[in-house]
Design a protein around this nucleic acid. Structure first.
Length: 152
DNA sequence: GCCAACGTTGGC
DNA sequence: GCCAACGTTGGC
């Protein structure tokens, strides 16, 4: 089972929003970056995903969600009224994909970015690289264990 | 709010 | 295909 990490602004969709809807799925949509989209299409039902809070007071990894539905065309791209509308996208040739995810658990504590940066073994994780804007990325089993262990 | 780093667009 | 200009991301 593959593992992943997604970035989100908690004001948009936080781990607590997932927790509040525990037992039901939330669409992960609005991704408009090709590399991130390509990773999303590789997600499978049951994959675990770290949720990272960005652009906020407490930046870091906050919890874990599970993929409940693999990639399907992101509806927003077809809707002219959607902020995620893409005029070059058609239902026959969709450009962007969404997945569904559901709450699994919060980490015992939030792991701040500076802590992630200082941990050995995470050097290859795009998240900790300066200037990286990739919002969906794979996490190796080794990286996953390092982060879980750090959470306590 | 600032600004460096990045991805995308479009003229050539 | 190059690359300057632009808009966005995201830590600080």
């Amino acid at each position: 089972m593959a593992k992943w990490l997604v970035k989100t602004e908690p004001s948009e969709c936080s781990i607590d929003d997932f927790a509040a809807k525990s037992g039901s799925s939330i669409p992960w949509d609005g991704v408009r970056n090709y590399q991130a989209r390509n990773f999303m299409t590789q997600m499978a039902e049951g994959d675990e995903v770290f949720v990272y809070h960005s652009s906020c007071k407490h930046i870091g990894i906050a919890g874990i969600v599970t993929v409940t539905r693999s990639a399907y065309p992101d509806p927003g791209q077809f809707d002219p009224k959607s902020p995620y509308h893409d005029s070059k996208s058609t239902p026959e040739k969709p450009r962007w994909q969404a997945v569904d995810m559901a709450f699994e658990r919060k980490l015992p504590r939030l792991i701040p970015l500076d802590e992630l940066k200082s941990l050995p073994g995470l050097d290859n994780l795009p998240l900790v690289k300066k200037g990286s804007r990739l919002s969906v990325m794979p996490v190796s089993d080794e990286e996953w264990q390092i982060i879980l262990k750090q959470a306590g």
